[in-house]
Every structure is written in structure tokens, then in C-alpha cells.
Write a protein that binds this DNA or RNA. Structure first.
Lengths: 152, 152
DNA sequence: CTTGATGCAAAAATTTTGCAATTAA
DNA sequence: TTAATTGCAAAATTTTTGCATCAAG
């Protein structure tokens, strides 16, 4: 895994997120703050195991992480991704970065790049109509060899 | 899950597949034939559990199915998909149906429709170049409510 | 015969759950 | 005060592995 910078966003979104938690009569606990903090600082999909490892300092139980991720996904604050390996990865949904976007993942070192492009809307609409489906969405991820790994 | 027809292809691809197995000094055993038969008759991604259940008659061990799918994927005879639920699904790669295609899956009843459309090649190339990636591929699946489930 | 494959059972890995104790509101 | 949350341990799943036996080539 490559090192990569995780610049904190200009404005933290945590106040807004905690507000929404409170709104649902959820509590702002240590573990939850730590998880949200981490996800904000690391704007790429993370597995529960990675989150657990990263939070080794504060000692947050793995079960708590599983439960938190379920909750955050249910509340729409986190989006769950599946890349090539049946492991769920979680990424914070922020106002800066739209909830819907895609990733380009290095098959060697797992580096992740966020992608602007999306599947053409008209084409998707056509697919939905031709098959009579409603409320169509898609999952789309790219895989390849990143620059650094091409030389190895 | 909706019932769906599984018309056998005009020409069975099994002889070719078994030939390739033999070529790799693999053996054509009962379980393997049953699995290939099943995958050919059911041209949609199936989970190992589904395969195991479908083969309840011949009594094929689940461990054997796991091992077989690993082998078949490694040999390129089967393609592995991940839909929305972190469960691996396997589909036979045939000459009729190209190995690369996508699916439209009903979020309610799990019906699967095969999709012709693909992510635009030029756009993908652009993404690869802009990020300096090589050997880029993608996974792309669509989700929505199928006609039957819209009335429920 | 020889080597790969199978079934079975055990082990490993992953995810969920029950519950008493804790803590935010 | 009280309702949600946590940690811990146990349970439930899912996947892999060791090994003696079996069978395809």
C-alpha cells in the first residue's frame, strides 16, 4: 500500500454529522467521533479491519465498528463499496465530495484514485426503459496498474 | 427470486471445457461435470451456496465447490462477480456470450438481466491516461426494480 | 501406477448477537 | 433518570485446509 496524503477539508463536516446523529436521538460517543474523524481524514474507502487498526490507539472494539458502520450507512452518512475482493469498504459522504462517484484502484498496491467520470445518464436511462426497470442505479469501479507499480 | 427459463445453448460447450481441463492435466470428475453442466444450464451468476443446493441430488461437497470455483476462475472458464452484497457469484464464460458483459439486477427479487451496453472505451482510455494507469478494466453492474416487483 | 480430486472434519476468518455495565442527553 | 451504546465473550457464518481415500488418466 502506497503512502498518500490526507489533507483535511477546509471546513470540518463533523458538526453537521453530529447534528444529524443527535436529530435521530443518537449519541455522540467517543468511538463514533473517532470513526467519523478518521473517515474524514482518510477520504478513501476503508475496511472495518483498517478502521479498527487505525483506531488501535483509542481502542475501539471491532464489534462497535461493525455496528457503527451499519448505522452510518443506514443514515446515509457513509457509503459502502465493494471492490474486487468481497470486502466492504466505507467512505464518508460529504458535501464537498458528492455521494456518487467512482474509483480507480491499483490491482497491485491498492492505491485508490477518485474518478469524476460516470456512466452516461442517457445510456442508463435507455437500459432502464428497455428492460422496464425503475429506480436504476449502478456500481462502477476501475482497476489497473498505477504508475508506481508499473516499474516493479 | 423469479422463475426464469434456462434454455440450453445450441451447442454444448462442455467438450471444449473438458478439453481445456485435460490440457492442464486436470481430471474430469463427477462433481466438476455437474458444476459445469449446471453453470451452462443456468446462464446467470450463481453463489457457491446456490450451486451447492442445486447439486443436492448428486451430493457435491461444499468444499469441493469452493475449490472448483477457484480453479475455474484461475483457468478463465468462469468469471466471478460481486453484486451489492459481498457474495461472490460465478458465471460460465462461453463463446456464445462474451466474457465481458454487465448485469441489471432487481433489488427486490434478484432477477438478473444481461446487459449489452458497456462503459465507453474512449472514456475509459482517457481515465487511464489521465491517471497514468495501465491495463485498465472495470466492473459495472446496474440495480433497480424489475417490472414484476414494481406492482408489489 | 501416479497424480490429482473428493469428502469429511477441523480450523481459520469474518460478522453478528446477548448482556451487563457505562455514559450521553 | 433513561435510553442508547459499549466492550466482552459467545455464537453464527463463511471460507479454507489437512488428510486419508478414491478414481481419472
Amino acid at each position: 500500500m502506497k503512502t498518500c496524503h490526507h489533507p483535511r477539508p477546509e471546513v470540518s463536516e463533523l458538526p453537521e454529522l453530529t447534528r444529524r446523529l443527535r436529530e435521530q436521538s443518537r449519541k455522540i460517543t467517543g468511538p463514533r467521533q473517532a470513526i467519523l474523524d478518521l473517515l474524514q481524514a482518510h477520504p478513501h474507502p476503508m475496511t472495518n479491519k483498517e478502521i479498527h487498526a487505525a483506531l488501535a490507539g483509542e481502542g475501539c472494539d471491532l464489534a462497535t465498528i461493525y455496528r457503527s458502520m451499519h448505522l452510518l450507512v443506514r443514515m446515509g452518512m457513509v457509503k459502502r463499496y465493494y471492490f474486487a475482493d468481497r470486502v466492504a469498504r466505507f467512505e464518508l459522504v460529504t458535501q464537498n465530495r458528492s455521494g456518487h462517484h467512482h474509483h480507480l484502484v491499483c490491482t497491485q498496491c491498492a492505491e485508490v484514485v477518485e474518478i469524476e467520470e460516470c456512466f452516461p445518464t442517457e445510456l442508463e436511462k435507455k437500459i432502464a426503459e428497455r428492460n422496464g426497470f425503475k429506480n436504476i442505479t449502478h456500481s462502477l469501479e476501475f482497476f489497473g496498474l498505477c504508475p508506481a507499480c508499473q516499474t516493479d
